[in-house]
């Protein structure tokens, strides 16, 4: 397979790195020999047709594939100097530092307030004043505070889809992660809500490393600085976003971006 990986970063700029990562999903080889580095405090987009392995790869980065018994992951995922693809690492600590947001908004079946403080309370933060501050701070960061401040103790399921998704992002950043993994976060939303989330991600990249899986080429082009194109488990091309979208090296990348397949 023709692979063109033009991204090689200084050690201090790497948020997370994989080396020779292979993921098997039952008998399917979902990710093949993947080595790539993700830039710190920036947005990296994963694109590719359905079934290319991009979501599987994303889920590997905070070990969510562990939930699916038939997956097997080999190789190294280096984060904060340790290989987190190791049986002995503490999953709780990793997942605290690498947050995740899904395609379908999935707020807990609890109040808006409880959605954000649930994990914090679990980590042992008890003082109401601190919890209140984090709730307000997180909701302000996702521009949801003004819309919900009067109904913090009402059910989160009563919010609109776009609001729910912003709440999920607020929930993810409330635990102060270093990396945010977003699996098609806007594909279930209307264009206006999607636009709000995109603006939000642009703001958030000052504080968080963001990795986003998307099927929306314009979205990848608008918000990301780096783009990786996957096909059938292979990383085909990885470069700065403007290069991928204006002058890709591999023909397949060009074909996909031009909409010739996928």
């Amino acid at each position: 397979m023709v692979t063109c990986n033009n991204i090689s970063l200084d050690q201090k700029d790497i948020a997370i790195e994989t080396r020779d990562l292979n993921i098997y999903y039952g008998s399917k080889h979902a990710i093949k020999n993947l080595s790539m580095q993700i830039k710190k405090l920036d947005i990296t987009a994963f694109i590719g047709p359905s079934g290319c392995g991009k979501s599987t790869y994303l889920r590997a980065l905070n070990r969510m594939n562990d939930l699916i018994p038939i997956t097997k992951t080999t190789g190294k995922i280096l984060f904060d100097g340790i290989n987190i693809n190791d049986k002995n690492v503490d999953l709780a600590t990793i997942r605290q530092k690498i947050g995740m947001v899904w395609q379908k908004p999935n707020p807990f079946n609890k109040s808006i307030y409880e959605n954000i403080v649930f994990a914090l309370k679990y980590y042992g933060i008890r003082q109401k004043q601190i919890l209140d501050e984090i709730v307000e701070d997180s909701l302000r960061k996702v521009a949801l505070w003004d819309e919900v401040k009067d109904r913090l103790h009402k059910s989160a399921l009563a919010l609109s889809g776009g609001q729910q998704q912003r709440l999920c992002i607020a929930r993810a950043i409330a635990t102060k992660p270093e990396i945010l993994l977003l699996d098609e976060p806007t594909s279930a939303l209307d264009p206006i809500s999607s636009g709000k989330i995109e603006e939000l991600l642009f703001e958030l990249k000052q504080d968080y490393t963001i990795i986003i899986v998307t099927h929306n080429m314009q979205q990848a082009g608008r918000i990301s600085s780096y783009t990786a194109f996957f096909l059938l488990g292979d990383l085909i091309e990885y470069d700065e976003t403007n290069v991928i979208f204006t002058n890709p090296v591999v023909d397949k990348t060009n074909d996909y971006i031009m909409g010739r397949f996928g």
């Binding site: 905070n62 969510m64 997942r95 947050g99 899904w102 999935n106 807990f108 980590y123 635990t175």
Partner: peptide
């Protein structure tokens, strides 16, 4: 719902 909780290290 389950994944959302586990993904936060709970």
């Amino acid at each position: 719902q389950k994944e959302a909780s586990l993904a936060m290290g709970i």
